[in-house]
Design a protein around this nucleic acid. Structure first.
Length: 491
RNA sequence: CGGGGUGUAGCGCAGUUGGCUAGCGUACCUGCUUUGGGAGCAGGGGGUCCCUGGUUCGAGUCCAGGUACCCCGACCA
């Protein structure tokens, strides 16, 4: 056995790392905090990208690309924004290297110092709003609905594969609107897009909510989010959509003339999801045997493994397997027929389970004789023998079932891990032992929120959009509260 | 940035109080046998023992300094 996976019970972090590395999704790189996304992992990202991009286009957005570098002065134009990002910016100070005088290697040429230092974008609001100033003059220029697929850099103190890397890939939407109402509507619309994507494609149930002032995006009036729950009971913010008000319009002096010939500041939103989604995908569904990928995002949906003793048998199986492969592919299903002779069937079974391929079809002499195949589901481990008849339909149906099943499983787990508490003792106990979300009253002050974080390490993940009014007392201070909020320890 | 850990073959690791040609598993190459859950046997190739300096007849091993990465916190998507 060359690829043992650490079990979740033994060491959850190590389990996660094993899945990423041994599942062939990514590798550590020579650069601190930066990872290499390997082809198998990147193909998941490509599927995420393609799907979301279609959803963005369908909601009226177009793609553009803005510079990787941002003049240092831009960042400081919005006070909260610089405050939030300054501590984690990579800075370009020089533009040239030269041979070291002692002949050993190369050094930064001190004569090549930049007039104004450039930062590597941690997010693009500033460079984009600086550009929007030139693009927007009239109400006729609005709304401006732009998305960009890009890499950004945030110099995090501690990194984790996919969940928090110094450089990561993401998309960031930046829209400009004539009215507050329209901008708020856009913010909510994109939150909805993210939630739909998470649930229908990633099979991860999410809670839609908004952030408290403490957790808000630097420079936003309101930050909305989708929160998911991982198998270790920790919450993971899977996507955010920000209502930026007129903050960036004011910082970059972006005004437009209304129909009534009045000059007004533009209203803004921004929204993003990143390669962190892949981390969520891994942790939400997988088990101790390896990855479990939702069929809709799995790079390989079906793998066919031949079992044979003789060349004649292999030839027969090749023929039948190719036929099956073609008929599945005709339905848009991605199939790999693995007749590589260097590995044995048992090895392949374990390997594709590790990689999370939803369906495995095994074909041996027995099957050829009986006109059957053996089909194994990755999510449940169940194996059944099916006849060739209507195989394509059966597989299509099974893929749908798997997609629904892993969503339901994640949903059941999530729902079991939302606990309502009304006493501090129970609150602490649930966070510590049961884990997951805790629904509790909070007095609405940042001070209380921070104290709770200090005592329990839990933060307010969000205030649910559909939270109904309910009178109660703050879990910590006993002060009056009008609705419950969701606490959890988070990634 | 604080705490802990690890750097020895592609990968995972062992290496005793300092001692001979640095070893094991796996992967790789060759051959034969195998193939319905990570195959077996035989043979073979592969090393800057993280770096620098020191102690010593002799350093993977001891000492000092450096460096890289991982894990747990603080910070964050």
């Amino acid at each position: 056995m060359s690829k043992e996976i650490t079990s979740r019970a033994q060491d959850y972090s190590q389990w996660y790392n094993d899945l990423v590395i041994k599942g062939g999704l990514a590798d550590y790189s020579a650069v601190r905090g930066c990872m290499v996304i390997k082809p198998y992992g990147y193909s998941i990202w490509e599927k995420i990208q393609r799907t979301l991009d279609d959803m963005f286009k369908a909601t009226g957005h177009v793609n553009a690309y803005f510079p990787l570098f941002i003049p240092k002065s831009f960042l400081s134009k919005e006070a909260a924004h610089v405050e939030g990002f300054a501590k984690e910016c990579a800075v370009v100070t020089h533009y040239r290297l030269k041979n070291s005088p002692d002949g050993k290697g190369i050094i930064v040429d001190p004569d090549a110092k930049l007039e104004e230092e450039l930062i590597v974008r941690p997010t693009s609001e500033t460079i984009i709003w600086n550009t929007y100033k030139d693009w927007i003059t009239s109400y006729r220029d609005l709304p401006l609905l732009i998305n960009q697929w890009a890499n950004v850099v945030r110099w995090e103190m501690r990194t984790r594969l996919f969940l928090r890397t110094a450089e990561f890939l993401w998309q960031e939407g930046h829209t400009a609107h004539a009215t507050k109402e329209e901008a708020v509507e856009e913010t909510m619309k994109m939150l909805g897009v993210y939630a739909d994507f998470a649930e229908q494609w990633m099979a991860i149930p999410v809670i839609k909510g908004y952030k408290t002032a403490n957790e808000r995006f630097a420079g936003a009036e309101d930050t909305y989010c989708i929160e998911a729950l991982m198998q270790d009971g920790k919450a993971l913010q899977a996507g955010t959509s920000h209502f930026l008000g007129q903050n960036f319009a004011k910082a970059f002096d972006v005004k437009f003339v209304t129909k009534e010939n009045k000059s007004e500041f533009v209203w803004a939103t921004s929204w993003g999801v990143s390669t962190r989604l892949i981390g969520a995908l891994i942790m939400a569904h997988s088990d101790d045997k390896g990855l479990i990928l939702p069929p809709k995002l799995a790079p390989i949906q079906v793998v066919i493994v031949p079992i044979y003793k003789t060349e004649e048998q292999l030839a027969t199986i090749n023929e039948k397997a190719t036929e099956i492969k073609k008929s599945l592919e005709a339905k848009g299903i991605s199939v790999k027929y693995d007749n590589d002779d260097k590995q044995k069937p048992g090895w392949k079974f374990a390997e594709y389970e590790m990689k999370g391929v939803p369906i495995r079809i095994a074909m041996g002499p027995r099957d050829i004789e009986n006109g059957t195949v053996e089909i194994a589901r990755r999510d449940t481990g169940e194996k059944h023998t099916y006849s060739f008849t209507d195989l394509t339909t059966k597989v299509e149906h099974l893929l749908e079932q798997i997609q629904l099943n892993i969503f339901q499983k994640a949903l059941d787990y999530r729902d079991e891990h939302i606990t309502r508490t009304d006493t501090w003792e129970e609150f602490v106990d649930v966070l510590e032992n049961k884990t997951g979300f805790v629904s509790a009253h909070w007095d609405g002050t940042s001070e209380t929120e921070l104290k709770i974080k200090e005592k329990t390490k839990a933060t307010i993940r969000c205030i649910e959009l559909n939270a109904h009014a309910e009178e109660g007392k703050c879990i910590l201070t006993g002060n009056p509260s009008h609705k419950r909020v969701l606490f959890a320890k988070a990634y």
